[in-house]
Write a protein that binds this DNA or RNA. Structure first.
Length: 367
DNA sequence: TCTGGGGTCCTAGGACCC
DNA sequence: TCTGGGGTCCTAGGACCC
């Protein structure tokens, strides 16, 4: 039986690359950080994406901008334009459609996707040739660098991509023994789905590498992971039978806006918080209207000075996208919080249960 | 280095209906 | 009056990802 081939394509430093190669070509070759304004080293946000030049200075995504600023004050710090990333994403997804068997693309996030290429690999004379073609097409047609991982399933392909970045190609398999050998030395966190919490749990049982799991049975794994054991048992061995299903155009499930204050806000400054909520609700309302969407549920997130975080939500019987209603609901939810002593570090508003706005909206646009 | 902002998916209990 | 099982919606929280 001929082996199945899946490719995972991951954009390199996606937001930073869009800025360097598409929006601001003058930034190519320079350290670029997309994220919050560092405000001379006092800013409270973090870096969303760092170009490889910035990474060479020790900067990485998720790092507080204040720290990034100290590491490299002359990096270009730009807030970024989400819309341009969305357009760039659609462009490279379109290119992937051309190479995928049956045009099936599974979008995993804005900057990565899986494609089934079992037939393509034969036509192009092997996975490495096809991966190189795809990489070249994306570079020449969309002006974006990417890395490619190829393997007999999605799980292993994703791990492969991460092994060789930027502009890398990594082929794993097709033999199960090759896959086992590839995964054997890797830390458990190399797998998609194993984050900090799960890694900590496993470590309590002395488990840190996939090789260790390969030598265990499901029942030996059970005390550490319970119901998650069969899943990890398989993934550690590179077994993943999931079919690659095209998830079509992006369907948004929720929309949110958070704000961390430059300094924590005193618990009695409710008017100020209400005003901030108003600003966020206005922006969310505008985005909903632009996309012709209505919401069913509002969630208000509150994070306090000790970093404890709560969320409170409420659903309404009739969907709407009216900013004033949204604001009123958000204020009500906020005012009902049980925590009244601690200062407030962050407030956020999220709308979910999104549905398409009907003719009503069109009518109001006429009036 | 105190820890952003945008998301997704899963679980679990309770309400409510048939 | 008691009992059940299934389905769906709502709310809260948690894990994870980029």
């Amino acid at each position: 039986m001929k082996s199945r081939w899946i490719m995972h394509v991951d954009m390199d430093a996606f937001f930073a690359s869009v800025e360097q190669y598409r929006n601001h070509p003058e930034l190519a070759g320079r350290p670029v950080c997309v994220g919050h304004d560092p405000k001379g080293g006092r800013g409270r946000g973090v870096v969303r994406a760092a170009s490889y030049e910035a990474r060479a200075k020790g900067i990485h995504a998720g790092m507080p901008v204040s720290q990034a600023y100290h590491l490299c004050p002359d990096a270009a710090f730009i807030p970024g334009e989400f819309e341009s990333y969305s357009v760039a994403s659609d462009e490279f997804m379109d290119i992937l459609h051309e190479y995928a068997d049956g045009g099936r693309v599974r979008r995993a996030s804005i900057d990565e996707a899986y494609i089934e290429v079992t037939e393509g690999v034969e036509v192009f004379g092997g996975p490495r040739n096809l991966a190189a073609w795809i990489q070249d097409s994306i570079w020449h047609e969309a002006n974006l660098p990417c890395s490619v991982g190829a393997a007999p399933n999605m799980s292993v392909a994703k791990v492969a991509t991460g092994m060789n970045k930027p502009r890398g190609i990594t082929i794993v398999g097709p033999e199960p023994s090759d896959i086992m050998k590839f995964l054997e030395p890797l830390p458990v966190t190399a797998l998609n789905g194993i984050g900090r919490k799960t890694a900590e749990r496993l470590e309590k049982f002395g488990i840190t590498t996939l090789g260790q799991i390969q030598r265990m049975t499901i029942s030996e794994l059970w005390p550490a992971l319970g119901r998650g054991s069969p899943w990890l048992f398989q993934r550690a061995r590179g077994i993943d039978e999931r079919p690659l299903i095209d998830n079509g155009p992006r369907v948004r499930k929720s929309m949110s806006k958070d704000r961390t204050f430059l300094e924590d806000v005193e618990p009695d400054a409710v008017d100020y918080i209400h005003e901030v909520l108003g600003g966020m609700c206005g922006k969310i309302g505008a985005r909903l209207q632009k996309k012709a969407l209505k919401f069913k549920t509002v969630t208000v997130k509150m994070r306090f000075s000790d970093y404890s975080t709560i969320q409170r939500s409420r659903s309404i019987p009739v969907e709407t996208n009216n900013s004033d209603i949204l604001h009123r609901l958000a204020v009500e939810i906020f005012d009902q919080r049980e925590e009244r002593e601690k200062s407030i570090r962050l407030v956020g508003v999220k709308v979910s249960g999104l549905s398409e706005a009907s003719e009503q909206l069109c009518l109001t646009e006429y009036l």
